[in-house]
Design a binder for these strands. Sequence first.
DNA 1: GGCCGCATGTAATCTGTTACATGATTCT
DNA 2: AGAATCATGTAACAGATTACATGCGGCC
Lengths: 174, 174
Amino acid sequence: MSFKLSPEYALLGILMRGPKHGYEVHSYFSSEMSQFWHLSMSQVYALLKRMEKNGMVVSRKELQEKRPAKKIFSITQAGKDRFLDWAYSPVKHVRDLRIEFMAKLFFIKELKLKGVSGIIDKQIGVLQEKLDVTRNSKERTADEFQAALHSFKIAQTTSALDWLNQCKIYFYEN
Amino acid sequence: MSFKLSPEYALLGILMRGPKHGYEVHSYFSSEMSQFWHLSMSQVYALLKRMEKNGMVVSRKELQEKRPAKKIFSITQAGKDRFLDWAYSPVKHVRDLRIEFMAKLFFIKELKLKGVSGIIDKQIGVLQEKLDVTRNSKERTADEFQAALHSFKIAQTTSALDWLNQCKIYFYEN
DNA sequence: GGCCGCATGTAATCTGTTACATGATTCT
DNA sequence: AGAATCATGTAACAGATTACATGCGGCC
């Protein structure tokens, strides 16, 4: 019912392009998304099974003569809604940019969805807010350790924000 | 036997300061380390139990009149060896800096261990190596997405390296 | 009377990882 | 002859999170 974790969203995204069976989903994942995300075959099968239980996908069997039957998964309307909802939401932490936010950008581009700059702006908003909070937090310079931790957070968030602003140029849409 | 994951190292670090019971370990964790790491009470108990099974700690019971008996854990020699080994090793990924590397710095300072700049230099080496590899990787600018991903990695690693160089100043030791 | 602090844990649930199991076809 | 590709999964293990269960003492 719940699934807050993201791998299922990635699988939904792949199925947004059309029905596929488990092996195919994994191949796509490995060839197109491997630079920022990895999932084992077994996990793909397990996730698809769970997602079917949750009504995000449905499957039908396709018999083949010389090979085991394929189980072809299609995304349901509920799945589509869920996916789009996810795709246009910013992530909460800097640490989620590398995989989860990347995946959102990837699918928005891959599925030719509108509003890339919208989500980038939302993400900038979230991180800017975090940066302001960190800057104003009292634990600034209690000791060397606090100071180091503080400057790490500032540095990582600032560099993420710079990158997001660059992104708007990379993904410029008219 | 194995434990590659880090929370147990944090608990070992806390016990390096002297024997403590579970509740106390958690209090220390919550008050001193909460800015960069969280562990629930239940998990502290579970981890200590596992660590005793692995010979990293030993426990003795201390009876109290009006309260439940305390179970006091002490670190073993094997535990100390393991901890120090961990504390002086750099982490492999930028994403491990915020929690795991921070914890190493925290304990090195807290336990007044020698060689802070040693581990910082090692960490700089690891990330510099990664940065060079990323810079030379062929997937540079295949498309907008690849380009964005590439520049994200460069940006985060570069900012981490700058921060590490700052750290050498924060933690300067004669 | 109720909440907080002290002090212990177990059990259930969820998720991920690794290994195992099967078996035909096609490429080298 | 052996490796890779196609195609499916289950089972065992490891780990984190959450909820549950217990109970006293002191404070407001």
